[in-house]
Structures are given as C-alpha cells and as structure tokens.
Design a protein around this nucleic acid. Sequence first.
DNA 1: CGTTAAGCGAGACGGTACGTCATGTCTTGCG
DNA 2: CGCAAGACATGACGTACCGTCTCGCTTAACG
Lengths: 188, 188, 188, 188
Amino acid sequence: MRHHGNRHGRSEQARQAVLEAADDILVERGFAGVTVEGIAARAGVAKQTIYRWWPSKVDILLDAFVDDMNEELTPPDLGSLADDLAAYLPMLATFLTETDEGAVFRALAGQAQHDPAVAARFRDECVLPLRARDRLILQRAAERGEFADLDVEAAVDQLVGPLYYRVLVTGEPITREFIDGLVRALVA
Amino acid sequence: MRHHGNRHGRSEQARQAVLEAADDILVERGFAGVTVEGIAARAGVAKQTIYRWWPSKVDILLDAFVDDMNEELTPPDLGSLADDLAAYLPMLATFLTETDEGAVFRALAGQAQHDPAVAARFRDECVLPLRARDRLILQRAAERGEFADLDVEAAVDQLVGPLYYRVLVTGEPITREFIDGLVRALVA
Amino acid sequence: MRHHGNRHGRSEQARQAVLEAADDILVERGFAGVTVEGIAARAGVAKQTIYRWWPSKVDILLDAFVDDMNEELTPPDLGSLADDLAAYLPMLATFLTETDEGAVFRALAGQAQHDPAVAARFRDECVLPLRARDRLILQRAAERGEFADLDVEAAVDQLVGPLYYRVLVTGEPITREFIDGLVRALVA
Amino acid sequence: MRHHGNRHGRSEQARQAVLEAADDILVERGFAGVTVEGIAARAGVAKQTIYRWWPSKVDILLDAFVDDMNEELTPPDLGSLADDLAAYLPMLATFLTETDEGAVFRALAGQAQHDPAVAARFRDECVLPLRARDRLILQRAAERGEFADLDVEAAVDQLVGPLYYRVLVTGEPITREFIDGLVRALVA
DNA sequence: CGTTAAGCGAGACGGTACGTCATGTCTTGCG
DNA sequence: CGCAAGACATGACGTACCGTCTCGCTTAACG
C-alpha cells in the first residue's frame, strides 16, 4: 500500500528509502556519484520530497550516518585498559576503513574540508559520538584507578589521532604493531 | 602584450596565471567555488588551455600546492629533539590552519576522501614531502644518538597524527600545551 | 467563523471565493500567473476542494466568466438598426478590451487555440451567449422589417468579426470611424 | 560531420533542427506538449543551446513561423478584384486551418492573448506580413482604378476579420458562400 | 625570410545535475 | 460528507559547469 502523504508529517517509509539509497550509492559509486536525482530514482521517491526534508545530499549522508552508527562500535569492558584498547582500536580501524558507515564517515570528513557548515554538523553529529566511545574506555580506567591524573581529552587525541591520520591522510594500513605502539606510548 | 601561443612548448605565463587563479578562488570562495570556467576567466586564459595541460581542477590544485610548498616549512635544527619539535610542530600547525597553502592541502585532503586517484597523487605529492620534513628532525636526533632504537615512521605518526586529527577532524585548536604533551609522550 | 465543510453539498462560500480569486489573479498577473495553488491560497481554500469541483484552472475561469457575463452587455433597443449598432458595438469593444470579464474572455480565447476541449466549452459557454446578444439587434431589425432577406448569422460575422480581429489579432484600437464603417457596409 | 561550435557564431544545423522539432511537436501534440526539453531531445540538441538563442519556446515558434511563412501564400493576380479575392481568401482560410504553419499561427495567436510581449512580436512578425499579402490585392485593384477612394486598411479588416473570427473564435467552417458574402459586401 | 605548425583566446556545442515550481492524487482529522 | 492542511510522485523549468570541438590569430623554428 503506497503512502502518499498525510497531514501528520513526513513519510517514515520515504525517509528510510532515501537514507538507504544514499548509503548504497555512496558505497557503489563514490561521493561524486551521489546525486540527489540518483538517490530519488533509487529510493523511488520524488526529488522534491528530498528537498523538502534535506537541504543537500550531505545532510542526507549525515542522517544516514547517525542512524547507522548507533548500532555499531560498542566499546568492550575487559577489566584492564591495555586489553580494552587492544580490542577497541582495531574495531575502530575496521569501522573506519572497511564498513559502509566508515565510507560515509570518510566522505563526510572529506566534505567537511570544503564547507565550514558541513564541518560543524560533522563534528557535532559524527565526531562527538565517536569520541564519546573513545573516551569511555579511558574513563573506566580512570575510575578503576589505573590513571589518577589523566587528561582524558588529550589522551584520546594521542590514541586515535594517529589512527585517523593513517586513514584519512597517509592511507597506510593500521597494523597490530602500530596499535600496540600507540597503547604502549600511552601506558608508559 | 599578451601571449598568444608559440610553436615550442607551453606558455609559462599561462601556467602561472592558472595556478594563482585556482589558489585565489579556493581561498576566496572555497573548493565548491573553484570551477574550470572560473579559473579560466580569472586567469585570462581559454578553457581549452587548461584542459590541454591539466585533467581536472584537482590536478591544478596539486600543482599549485607543490609549487608553493617548496618555499615553506624548513624544519629547524636547534641541537636537541625537544627544542626542534617545540619549534617545528607549531610551524606545521600554522601552515595547515592559517596559510593559503594549508587551505589547498585541506581541500586536497578532502577530495582525496572522495576519489582514490586523487588520494594517490595527494599522498605522493603532498603528504610524502611533508612527512620528509617531519622525519628529518627525528632522523637528526637519531644521528645524534638521542634515540638509538627509534622506529622513525611510527614516531612520526604518533607526533603529527594527533595534530592532523585536530585539523581535519575535530577542528580543535592546536595549543602550546597540546604540542608539549605530544613531545613529552615521545621523549618518555 | 470559517466554514470547514458540512454534510450536505458544496460550500457556496468556497465556490465564490475560488471564482473571485481566479479572476483577480488573472487580472493582476496574467494567465501564466494563474495557478491552482495560487487560487487556493488566495481564496483560503484547500487545493483538493478546487479539484473536487473543477477539472482545471480553465474551467474555473469559464465558470467565473459565465457568472459575471450575465450581468453585463444588455443590447440597447433604440428603434433603428443603425442606432442600435452605433450604441452596442462600442459597448462590446469596451467589454472585450477594458473590463475584467473581457480579460477573462481573451484568456479563454487564447487557451482555446491550444486545446480543442477548451475550445468546445469556450464556444458553448462564452461565444454563444455573446453571439445571442449580437444577433438580438439584427433580429429585432428584421422583425421591424428593416431587412427582410437578411442572413443573420453571416451578418453577425461581418459585423463583429472585424472587431474581434482587431482585439485578438492586430491589437488596433477600435475607433468610432471603424465601427461606422462596419455599420455602413452592412446597411448598404 | 558533426558541428560542435566555432568562433563565428551559431550552428545553422542546430537552428534548423530546433525549429523543425518545435514545429513537429506542436502539430503532433499541441501547444501544451511543446516543451523545451522535448524540442531539445527531438532536435538532438542540448537544452542550453536552445536557451542560448531563444528566450522561450514561444520565440522558437515565432522563428519557425517566420521561416516557413515566406514560402507560402503568394496572392494571385488575376486582373479583377473579385476574382483575386475569390482565389485568395480560400487560400488564406486553408493556410490558417489546415497547414502546419496555420497551427503555429493559431498557437501564437493564443499565446499572444496571455502575454503582451508575445503579442507585440506576434503582430510584428506574423500579422504584419500576412496583412501585407492581404493588402496587396486591394492595392492592385486601387491601382487599376477599381476603387478610387478605398480605405485599404479598413477594407482589409472587413474582409479578413470575419475569416479570422471564424478560425479563432467560433470555429465555424469557412465556406464558399461565406467568402462570397464577404466579397459582395466589399464590392457593393 | 617566408612557411608552417603548435599554443593560444574565444566561445558554441552535447551533456548532466542542479534546485524550484506547479500539477493532480492521496490521507488525515475537524466541524 | 465537505473541508483545510499538506505530503507525495511526476515532470518541466531555467541555470551552471563539464569536457569536447572548431576557429583564426600569434609566434618561433625550419626550409
């Protein structure tokens, strides 16, 4: 049964179809291949319906990322900082480099370099939630007394910064050894 | 007197005008405002002249970056690793966030997220030369014997990774204290 | 207190509001400016209410014309054909060129060139009633015996044809002399 | 050999293709079926090429009419006014009602009712040339001395006005008798 | 020392996607 | 049941750039 609008706001069906279509096209054809017309066609939705709810294709990807991210990346709680990090950082690396959500993240990070408005939304809606997960592990370690005087924010940057650097800048693979080095530098 | 072509090789005048126009437009209007037509108009050059020498606008920016970068960012040589880093890292941060070349770098980094071909050229022509400078300081320290057993590549990532992460991802400012923390973590 | 529907038949209030809104917009902004959405907004009526009762905006204008025309253009009865025509033809010209109803008539005549269905309704509901008035004068003259053997239909065409031609085709103003010429040609 | 633009102005090939496509679509699907996109597709031309040279689809039809009209409707010269008119007026009627150019003329006449700017161009480029032909017959008669004191302009209106009135307003067919009546009224 | 071919400015061309506007259909809840 | 409200699929609008092409001028090496 097709839904053709009603007085109580938007069609959830259309919303989902748009987000999924955007996601799929991004993964299949890259960011340049993502067009509002393409999304509309693939989602079986009118272009105007997209423009009614999203100002641009970037906003669609932001929504798509927010929707999907929340189902992923639950940080482990293994009882020791070193173990938690050894489990979590590879998960994060895989998330960023291998998953569809990671592809969306990278595309948004790319677009954030071109547009300050995108950058602001990207930080609030993508980076902050990811950092919250990063922080969680360190905070639990602090609560256990492993690090009495830790500056959590700086520590997060030192831990995940090199990882994002490899993902977004150098393209180097993130190896077990690389992560071990990061953990050792922090624990030392 | 305008130059209208010759039989043997390209017009250096046109090349310079194009690179400068691209640079200027990027800084003034952002990456989205950079168009081949706009560059041509501003440089007083025919569109075809651009397409004859550059496959896309990204290649223009790459050339512009390479031209300009070589005049910047000479790493200091103060005799101690801590001093060198304390002098160099703020220079790098300023280069990335404040200068026109930094704006080009960020734009290219952004576009590299969207296109693997751009990513490859970006790494070869932008990232590698910058990393060469990063490495120089650590190599000199190693030669002085400050760190006998240092893995230079990993150390570079740990040093500059958090810095790029702030520039490209979180947008947090890069403070004196932040840099001191990075240096301390390495020297420890 | 606004009316929001009732159980027994359509709202006359809504009908009037729609016809007036269509008329007003046509006069103010021209035929291209007449849109169903615009009419609905101006009339304070839902779009669906319009589509429930009129198949298209042209049908709205047809209804508007029929409503208004009946209050206008009563042919005079001065006792002689020449006098009647000398009084009536200028009235007709003014009606077509100066009044709001004339504007509606011209818009419908224009649309009739594009769509045979419109043309049919236009002739039945607009042209025929106007021709009835034209004919009336000639018929009364025939009844008075002024013209025993007159072909009324052909005479009407010869009289008002040039007038419509000027209004719809050449745009020439309709002068006293022009009308006198038409009358003279008929009476001769 | 395809032509893709040069420094000396527009492609005559594209111009012709556009005019013919517009003409064909108008005849096949009516004025409402004429769209710039449809013309572009049918002519094998880019939409922008159309907008570069014509402000609107009406301007295309105007050009198409002007191009085609000049090859049609040469008034006869049979030596007497009555004969000339008896030959010419049916030709005119057929031109307006049966030919493709007539369809374009009627469409333009329709659009002229909606837009004063169109009306102005329509009169200058369509109506005036047609009237020139109408006038020719009467002028030749005047030169022959058939009508010493004829007001040619008014006579043209009286002759062709009823004819256009039937074509554009009533839709009545234009019969031999009807035309004879018009000629008789003038000659009388 | 004139020929001639490459580089150039100019700009029209076939395309693709943009973001907007109006159409006519639909669903909902109030009166 | 009629209505106001408004979301929806559809499709054309007019614009902006893309990358390709042709043209005629300028200019320097070659004949």
